[in-house]
Design a binder for these strands. Structure first.
Lengths: 335, 335
DNA sequence: AAATAATGTGTGAACGTTCACATATAAGTT
DNA sequence: AACTTATATGTGAACGTTCACACATTATTT
């Protein structure tokens, strides 16, 4: 009943050669005569034989598999990156084992890494924008498997790819200041995210540098709902702002809604700048001025870097930095 | 330099037992004396030994791995499902190999399936809302690996989990008709998606059943941009509609934008109903009336069903059907 | 003509596990 | 005292590959 899985030996028997010859055919080894090669290929086709990659991995002690570790991919950025990483990996002959971690606790992370390490992945790419465990502890769990971090803390001596969040935040805030805004409030992302911290700190700094005082800042969780609630709190407690820097586009949407609920028009009464440039941002009402991050590139570069590390352990450790860019639309205007 | 990977034998040597005993300790086999067990566990800890799952898979000819096949997860639904499937699988001790297929062509799909099958995944869960290859061909590629389809065509004798799209579409259209709308247009999803087809057909049917004639229908690609463009075409070519059924929430956002650009107010001049209930939909302006789909449940049920099929091949083949539900907000009103 | 090189093919071992046994000791039963 | 049963441990084989060789055969050089 159960359909038999064929092996090298089955093919070898049918083709009248040894298993080694079949192996050579599969791996495109040159020293096989054209006739034999053809005959073997024919048998492979008729039998529907597929090489067992598990066995291959065992003997080669490399799996042609990459592990990807994420900390919640419900957000736009991580999702995009997972997709791009998968594509980049597939193009280079690697499969992807996907592991998401609900809470960035030591236990959960080390368990996930153990699992990947047990599967003998050749490398791990970790989308770790969250304050979780120290990189050293992470490496500990991975033993000698190379790891590339995406979007971790800025300035670490770790193989990683990051977006210059401070630069992006400065772009957003300076844009508002140049328009003439002086009373700028903020809705920031969860402050256990490196990116959220960096943007928040830079917002404070940029406002100060312009000679003004930062107004109130409320923390959201990236969701539109939290943006809505944050904006309501802002309106209640420190409502004289004329501009609002928001940690991502979804929260900006929620904030817009809260503002219009209170009769504050965007951008006439309040200017708003978001972050990410999700595809929908251009169709918000009004279309959202935002800071674009090239998530696709992040993923691509990350995979490429990881493969370099795998194939040559002496690849220098560095932090690839990408620059975000300001996209001006209609949600920001003169005060 | 290269850190040695330890094996059963290394642990056995250090603990002064045979490799088999170590194996027993790892697999919680009962017949190991408490002292020996403790001693072995101690050695495992100090050595930092991790069992090689590749070797285990080889001998057990099962990998504790599930393959997940997607056809573009940039959309909200698939993304949610991948996350949930991963969580459900992890809870049950399975890892996930993630494979995304750019274009649903036979070559790409069969290549992806070959790859999964070569990795000896125990089962495959395919988020296949797209007219791709026939299920029979798919099974062909998978040999005897169980497959569960998520969101495929309705009414097939295939292990699958689907949302009753026709029911959802009827909900949306009837809601508009009950409000008094007679001239209802549509922006549908790409018509190579089963869900888009079902919703479209049901829209036509429901409008007819009410005694009216369906107005123009334009096809989008699920993106807000395509919704915008579709609405503009609608406004240009058949503009007397008072209501609009849109294939998903993103396109609805784009459509709203196009309408307000043309001075048509939502819902005063045109009512709009979307699909999906993405978390942002409640914060559109106006908040979007939409049909909610429980993507989380889809994933959960899919995994559970797949595992049943894996453990008991005689599990009856069925199509789990989930019902969507209408969420009425402010984008729909009396004409 | 003999020595060397290139080509095609086959053999044994290894990768790190688990499975099916075999064995040894201790404990319980007739 | 002799048989059965239970417990704890060890041994050989197997999973399906690849690697490092060894061995023919043919082609090329000296």
């Amino acid at each position: 009943m159960k359909k038999q899985r064929y092996t090298l030996n089955d093919v070898a028997r049918d083709a009248g050669v040894s298993y080694q010859t079949v192996s050579r055919v599969i791996n495109d080894h040159p020293s096989v005569s054209p006739e034999t090669r053809l005959r073997v290929q024919e048998v492979i086709r008729t039998l529907g034989y597929r090489p067992n990659k598990v066995a291959k991995s065992l003997v080669a002690s490399q799996s042609n598999t990459l592990g990807i570790l994420t900390f919640g991919i419900s957000h736009f950025g991580p999702t995009q990156m997972v997709l791009n990483i998968e594509r980049a990996a597939k193009n280079l002959g690697y499969d992807l084992i996907f592991s998401n971690v609900g809470q960035p606790t030591y236990d959960q992370i080390s368990h996930a890494l153990d699992s990947l390490s047990g599967r003998r992945v050749d490398g791990i790419i970790s989308i770790s924008p969250v304050v979780g465990i120290a990189y050293e502890e992470m490496l500990e769990c991975c033993h000698d498997i190379p790891v590339v971090l995406i979007d971790p803390q800025f300035g670490l001596e770790i193989p990683s790819v990051i977006v210059d969040q401070r630069y992006g935040s400065r772009l957003a805030t300076e844009h508002l200041i140049e328009l003439g805004h002086q009373r700028i409030a903020e809705i920031c992302g969860p402050l256990n995210w490196f990116g959220a911290i960096a943007r928040h700190e830079q917002w404070v700094e940029t406002v100060h540098q312009a000679g003004f005082t930062p107004m109130m800042s409320v923390e959201g969780d990236w969701s539109a709902l939290s943006g809505y609630e944050a904006a309501r709190r802002l309106l209640k407690e420190d409502s004289h702002f004329t501009a609002l820097v928001v940690g991502n586009d979804q929260m900006a949407l929620g904030a817009c809604y809260a503002l219009s609920e209170h009769g504050r028009r965007v951008p006439l009464d309040v200017s708003i700048v978001g972050f990410d440039d999700i595809p929908e941002a251009a169709f918000f009402q009004p279309p959202l001025t935002t800071v674009r991050q090239e998530f696709n590139q992040l993923g691509d570069i990350g995979v490429r870097y990881l493969l370099e590390l795998i194939h040559n352990p002496d690849t220098p450790i560095e932090q690839h930095v990408l620059c975000p860019e300001l996209v001006v639309r209609k949600s920001s205007a003169l005060p």
